[in-house]
């Protein structure tokens, strides 16, 4: 990457982000990559006068990450998307879609996690005739992978 990347710890995240907001940075987006069965790499991209700045957070899948949506409202959709795709939980989201932003019940859970999804992929063959409940139950949380599922 051409620009500098500053590593941050989950505890310092909100403070660092708030500092950048005061300096006049605009939140561009968050990029998320799965590293291994336990870790997820989250990159926060910020922009000021067409220059980019990145923060790198290495998050554990099982532990929720503090949400930056109270600081930058624009992070709301991005964090919900990561919650859908990677099952990483965010604490303090302004609007929490409970992992239902994009995905329906029958679509596979956390589709971007290569390490924990191998077994689920085969079993979740979509069936059209299957009658589904009109309102997906709010308790169904694809966000948090079960410990056993993660190891497989």
């Amino acid at each position: 990457m051409r620009e500098e990347i500053t590593p941050v710890r989950p505890a310092d995240l909100i403070g660092e982000v708030a500092k950048l907001k005061i300096q006049g940075y605009r939140l561009v987006t968050l990029s998320c990559t799965e590293i291994d069965a336990n870790c997820i790499d989250v990159l926060y991209h910020f922009d000021k006068d067409l220059g980019l700045k990145h923060l790198r957070l290495t998050a554990m899948k099982a532990e929720p990450v503090p949400s930056i949506s109270p600081v930058y409202f624009a992070a709301l959709l991005i964090e919900n998307e990561i919650q859908d795709f990677f099952g990483l939980k965010f604490q303090g989201l302004v609007v929490d879609f409970q992992g239902m932003l994009y995905l329906e019940e029958e679509a596979l859970k956390t589709p971007f996690c290569k390490f924990s999804i191998q077994t689920a992929e085969k079993t979740s063959a979509p069936s059209i005739a299957h009658a589904e409940p009109a309102e997906p139950p709010a308790a169904a949380m694809p966000g948090e992978p079960a410990p056993g599922e993660m190891d497989s």
Partner: peptide, 15 residues
């Protein structure tokens, strides 16, 4: 590719 992430403009314009 290991990861390809696309952030499109409408996604940023919804907030």
């Amino acid at each position: 590719l290991d990861r390809l992430r696309i952030r499109t403009p409408t996604f940023a314009n919804i907030p």
